[in-house]
Write a protein that binds this DNA or RNA. Sequence first.
DNA 1: TACCGATATGTATATCTTTGCATAACGGCA
DNA 2: TGCCGTTATGCAAAGATATACATATCGGTA
Lengths: 125, 125
Amino acid sequence: MGKRGKSNRFNVLLNYKLWLSSISGEGIISEEVHILLVGIHDKNSLKAAAEDAGISYRKAWGDLKQAESLLGYDLTEKTRGGKKGGQSVLTPAALKLLEAYAALQKKLDDAVEEAYLELKKKMEN
Amino acid sequence: MGKRGKSNRFNVLLNYKLWLSSISGEGIISEEVHILLVGIHDKNSLKAAAEDAGISYRKAWGDLKQAESLLGYDLTEKTRGGKKGGQSVLTPAALKLLEAYAALQKKLDDAVEEAYLELKKKMEN
DNA sequence: TACCGATATGTATATCTTTGCATAACGGCA
DNA sequence: TGCCGTTATGCAAAGATATACATATCGGTA
């Protein structure tokens, strides 16, 4: 055995969740919307993106709508009918948001990781 | 009017939520537990802490129990009966956790604030 | 010893969220 | 023009989460 036992091992994980909200706090853009947008970027389809994200189309559609209403501009350009039945394509604004969000998430992932290690160290000391 | 209008103002707030979980992910210690612990520290009463936190005693009690079970040790020393009816007092381990958590929260608050400003800047440019 | 107020816990109720249809509109294409 | 697949949207049903309520235990104190 080593010098110190495993008795006071701090065996818990640190999780976090991000979301954007209106100033008043009602409407929100959850991380799920980010995942949806990535999916739409890949497939040009809200339906497919919802499936990939593992949520119902109904919810995906509602979430996206709320996000657009909150931001005040469209994140997708939707068309119905046609050969493929219709599609949802990201707007330039959505692409910009995706890019900015990726940077933000990376920064916070790092900060959380770092904070977690410090917490663990303090709790295991 | 200034040089740039307020048209592309990114009028949304960045929120986040932290929690600890078991490796397997079932049990969790939510931020609410942190608030509860602070309340217990102040009042030496779970009942009072729950009221302050604005949640039911039933939930507060369940949350605390889950947290203790997840950590594997007690966060409070509870007594029933007596002059005041009983009380809940934080254990040294809970105090240590509170301290470590405060530092963690400060660090993340700062990181989020910083990340938010960057996001805003990118989205408003 | 009866009472008080807090902890302890099960269970029913209410509230909130998500899903699951159902149904309509749309526009290429066979 | 009828079919297909997707977007669009309302509404009922199902699931998850929190509250409310009931009841028991405990130990000082009047």
